[in-house]
């Protein structure tokens, strides 16, 4: 007997049918977008403050969801960014004058091409894509956000990782003058996050430079942040200044803060509770009642194989 269980993810999420039906145009558009991407640095340069500028020539990326987007106002005024205060409303206020230009990104470790990049040069070779992802915070709330970014895999390939590069470590800017939250030891500063190399190379993983078609607002992690949609929000490190390739797993800021509560993987998992609260349900911002949390935040089909044969209770 064939028992067919309906998928939690509609097929339409995997590739927008509209794109599929107009795929030839789509490819042409993508080519146009590549050309347009070349204009972005000029656009950025003309804009004194980095945040809020329209990003031209976006291409619609895969894995989209047809779920309702969380309003821009909520995405930009309900933030966990402890560098700018621990209250959700604080980052929008405290990060107002944060300088994201000039910005350099240091790439080092187990790679053939270590370098220090100006942000513009870091992004320039790539086409920006729109990726509509669910974001699930470890505090049991969630959003749907149209990010603008670049697949991390495409960026990593440029650095030519060696065979020793088994993990990637990301570091946020450390600047207590600009980031008042860093003046107190709430977390061990600077904020550090990490991924296994296969997680970093996964097509879902992106480095975001914008949302809602515009450059990232400061409170959302401008000018460059990680987005890994099947992991809890805190993995999505903001305002990245360093990417390091390592043989051993890095120790992340939250692992240091609470080793029993925050693991290296931090995959969204409704069956493994946070030691102090339930993870089985979440409140989608804008909704009244809570909804069920999906395994790997609804991306199981894409990522479950990365964790086959792993005890997810142990590797939480």
């Amino acid at each position: 007997m064939l028992i067919k269980k309906p998928d939690d993810i509609r097929p339409s999420e995997i590739l927008d049918q509209k794109i599929y039906l107009t795929r030839r145009e789509f490819i042409l558009n993508a080519a146009g977008a590549t050309a347009a991407a070349a204009l972005i640095p000029a656009l950025l340069a003309s804009h004194g403050a980095y945040a809020g500028a329209k990003l031209a020539g976006l291409r619609k990326g895969p894995f989209g969801t047809s779920e309702e987007l969380t309003p821009y106002e909520d995405v930009t005024h309900y933030n966990n960014f402890y560098e700018f205060g621990t209250e959700k409303e604080q980052p929008a206020i405290m990060a107002k004058n944060f300088r994201t230009k000039p910005w350099t990104v240091t790439v080092e470790g187990e790679i053939n091409k270590p370098a220090v990049y100006q942000l513009e040069d870091f992004i320039k070779p790539h086409t920006l894509e729109e990726r509509i992802y669910r974001l699930r915070c470890v505090e049991a709330w969630s959003m749907v956000i149209p990010w603008v970014g670049i697949p991390l895999a495409d960026i990593i390939k440029r650095f030519e990782p060696t065979s020793k590069a088994k993990y990637v470590e990301f570091t946020t800017l450390h600047d207590p003058v600009q980031m008042p939250g860093q003046r107190r030891a709430i977390l061990k500063w600077p904020y550090v996050e990490g991924l296994r190399i296969d997680e970093a190379m996964h097509p879902l993983t992106i480095l975001a430079v914008g949302l809602y078609g515009e450059t990232l607002p400061n409170q959302n992690g401008a000018p460059l942040r990680l987005v890994v949609p099947w992991k809890y929000g805190f993995k999505n490190i903001k305002s990245i200044v360093k990417i390091r390739f390592l043989e051993k797993p890095p120790v992340t800021a939250w692992m240091t803060a609470g080793p029993a509560e925050y693991g290296f993987y931090a995959n969204v998992n409704p069956d493994v509770d946070h030691p102090r609260w339930s993870q089985s349900r979440e409140r989608r911002i804008g909704e009244f009642f809570k909804r069920k949390t999906l395994m790997f935040n609804g991306y199981a089909e894409q990522v479950a194989h990365l964790y086959a044969h792993m005890d997810l209770n142990k590797y939480f």
Partner: peptide, 10 residues
């Protein structure tokens, strides 16, 4: 007046 922010229940 809609002043409870993005997550009014919380």
């Amino acid at each position: 007046n809609n002043h409870l922010g993005a997550n009014p229940i919380e």
